[in-house]
């Protein structure tokens, strides 16, 4: 049971949904002055061995993927899966409708031929590939997600304007409230808050 729970935590963690360690502690949120500092902090936090952390900024930051140690997105595999499914559906649809269910002789052409079927097969391939890409992208990002304990922090509202934040989840194996806060302070965080899932945020510095 506990391994399944742990697996579910890992999967959710990969989507950026971090379960709290216990009811009271969700993680620490640190604010940095500018994108460069955030990039450096993300690199250092990864090098310190943290796995469950995320960064939040008003705009995409170049090189952040590498700094955070994010690999290639898995969404490409979902695209391939959707594409193959769409292709199979297209072949079946063309064959079944025109050669099995309702065969009509049109100027002596074969009931099922590959030439006129390709547009349908192609379009269904693209349609399902595109849909699985979009849906897969949302799923892998853990979206839509209307609730996030980080919203308890008033300061976090700046993230849509001029705030650059790094959040380390309490569920990370290396997480320890004191040492994690110290690490973030050493990395140059201007403000550090402890986020509690109960609905409060304590400013520490």
């Amino acid at each position: 049971m506990s391994t399944i729970k742990e697996l579910a935590r890992d999967v959710k963690g990969s989507m950026g949904i971090f379960d709290g360690k216990d009811e009271s502690l969700y993680g620490v949120l640190a604010e940095f002055r500018h994108p460069g500092a955030l990039l450096e902090a993300a690199r250092s936090v990864r090098e310190a061995g943290f796995k469950r952390f995320d960064v939040h900024s008003p705009f995409p930051i170049h090189g952040m993927d590498r700094a955070m140690g994010l690999g290639n997105s898995l969404v490409g595999w979902l695209t391939v899966g959707g594409g193959i499914a769409g292709m199979a559906l297209g072949v079946w649809l063309q064959w079944w409708t025109s050669a099995v269910d309702y065969p009509i002789n049109i100027s002596g052409k074969p009931f099922f031929a590959i030439e006129p079927s390709i547009p349908v097969i192609f379009e269904l391939t693209i349609l399902l590939a595109a849909l699985s890409t979009v849906i897969g992208m949302f799923a892998l990002n853990g979206l839509p997600r209307p609730y996030n304990p980080l919203f308890y922090s008033d300061r976090f509202r700046k993230v849509t304007d001029d705030g650059f934040f790094l959040h380390i989840a309490a569920s990370d194996r290396r997480f320890d409230l004191e040492s994690t806060q110290k690490l973030l302070r050493d990395l140059g965080a201007t403000h550090i808050e402890t986020i509690r899932d109960s609905g409060t945020a304590d400013a520490e510095a």
Binding site: S107, K109, E115, P116, I118, P119
Partner: peptide, 12 residues
């Protein structure tokens, strides 16, 4: 290439 081929195949 396929667009060219398919229309000619269809038009026959």
């Amino acid at each position: 290439a396929f667009s060219q081929y398919m229309l000619i195949w269809y038009g026959n």
